[in-house]
């Protein structure tokens, strides 16, 4: 029995009904699969929870934080909702695009770049999430430094 199977059984035990474990199980599987959910991950989660892979896919594809395609080691997400937009978010996005040589929505090498909806940091715009850790008050001028820093580190804390 795989380790994932056992861990999912533990998650399952936290809930009165095992279906509730599907999101945390998918989150765990994604973490174990390099930040995204390959076909095999769906089959494993489904098996561990007595669900079908199709059901797990219907769940994962509903939520933005599940990735259905491979992602880079560093996931950079720039909030471009109103408050960040008013404070130069687009310039931040463009700075990342030129620094990384790719467009938002793409993955190349170690980096994935995304624009995202409000990250809940509007008072400290622009918010940039690097591997899900939020950086506040980011300006276009900060981008080169962030990228350089990430190029020098491995996966993990952004």
């Amino acid at each position: 029995m795989s380790a994932l199977y056992e861990e999912i059984q533990e998650i399952r035990a936290r809930y009165p009904e095992s279906l509730s474990a599907v999101m945390p199980a998918l989150q765990l599987a994604q973490e174990r699969s390099g930040g995204w959910l390959p076909e095999e991950a769906f089959r494993e989660v489904a098996d561990a929870l007595d669900l079908t892979p199709a059901y797990c896919l219907s769940i994962a594809s509903f939520y933005d934080m599940f990735r259905l395609e491979p992602v880079g080691e560093h996931m950079i997400e720039v909030c471009t909702n109103i408050s960040c937009g008013l404070n130069g978010a687009q310039q931040v996005v463009e700075a990342f695009e030129s620094e990384l040589g790719m467009r938002a929505g793409e993955t190349t090498g170690a980096f994935s770049l995304r624009t995202v909806e409000c990250l809940g940091g509007c008072g400290w715009a622009t918010i940039v999430a690097v591997n899900n850790r939020h950086r506040l008050n980011v300006q276009a001028g900060d981008v080169a430094g962030i990228v350089a820093e990430l190029r020098g580190t491995g996966r993990g804390e952004g």
Binding site: E39, F42, L51, T52, P53, A54, Y55, L57, S58, S61, F62, Y63
Partner: peptide, 21 residues
């Protein structure tokens, strides 16, 4: 049977099975 499901969200929602199953 949970074989035919809705995938994606909002206007991108579509009816689907799992991959090519």
């Amino acid at each position: 049977d949970n074989q035919l499901v809705a995938r994606n969200r909002g206007s991108h929602t579509e009816i689907s099975t799992f991959e090519s199953d």
